[in-house]
Amino acid sequence: MRHRNAGFKLGRNTSHRRALLRNLVTSVIIEDRVETTVAKAKAVRPLVEKMITLGKKGDLHSRRQALAFLMTDDSVTRLFETVAPRYGDRNGGYLRIVKTGFQKGDGAEKAFIELLGAEKQLDEKRQKRTDAKAKKRAELEKQLEESKAAEGGEEAA
């Protein structure tokens, strides 16, 4: 029987599980979207929602509680200045879990855990990434053409 046995153990001991969840919460707050297993996504959801609620309070005690849990100071700053104000009029339900398929090695079910309302930021990140790739590809092609031209000039001489 599983009476009164709440929570997810995730196949880890207490300290490892706590470290994993703290890292995942920090990553979700910094990146807006993280791919992980469904079990981890479901385990991390209440913790992220609690952090956003602390961010919405915005007082010194809430900031210190967030600092005690999150792994980086940058994530706390982002939580209080960017993420929490996004949900000022919303009472909970800040996350979405989207199943994406299965992991190659062990067949575990994968999912994205993402903050609602972050689509605009995610699109901007995606656009920056594609622009950077295109710029890098153009530079490499230019270098390749220059090296071919230099080789052709040496052979002619």
Rank of each mutant, 00 (worst) to 15 (best):
R4Y: 13
A6R: 14
A6F: 15
K9V: 11
K9I: 06
K9E: 13
L10Y: 11
G11L: 10
R12F: 11
T14I: 10
S15H: 07
H16G: 03
H16E: 13
H16K: 09
R17I: 00
R17V: 00
R18Q: 12
R18A: 14
R18M: 15
R18L: 15
A19R: 10
L20I: 01
L21M: 14
R22D: 08
N23Q: 02
L24T: 11
V28Y: 09
I29H: 09
I30T: 03
I30H: 02
D32G: 04
R33W: 07
V34Y: 05
T36R: 09
T36Y: 12
T36E: 13
V38M: 05
K40C: 04
A41H: 04
K42Q: 12
P46Q: 11
V48P: 07
V48Q: 04
V48S: 05
K50F: 06
I52C: 04
I52H: 01
G55K: 05
K57W: 06
G58M: 02
L60Y: 13
L60N: 14
H61L: 10
S62G: 14
R63C: 07
R63Q: 11
R64W: 06
A66G: 02
A66L: 05
A66N: 05
A68G: 10
D73S: 14
D74R: 12
V76T: 08
R78N: 01
L79S: 02
F80Q: 03
F80K: 00
E81H: 11
T82Q: 14
R86C: 04
R86V: 00
G88R: 08
N91D: 15
G93W: 04
L95E: 07
R96Q: 13
I97N: 08
V98L: 11
G101N: 10
F102P: 07
E109K: 09
E109R: 04
K110V: 13
F112S: 02
G117V: 05
K125V: 02
K125M: 10
K128S: 06
R129N: 03
D131Q: 15
K135I: 03
K136Q: 13
K136W: 06
A138P: 02
L140N: 08
E141K: 00
K142A: 15
E145M: 12
S147P: 01
E151H: 06
E154M: 07
A157L: 14
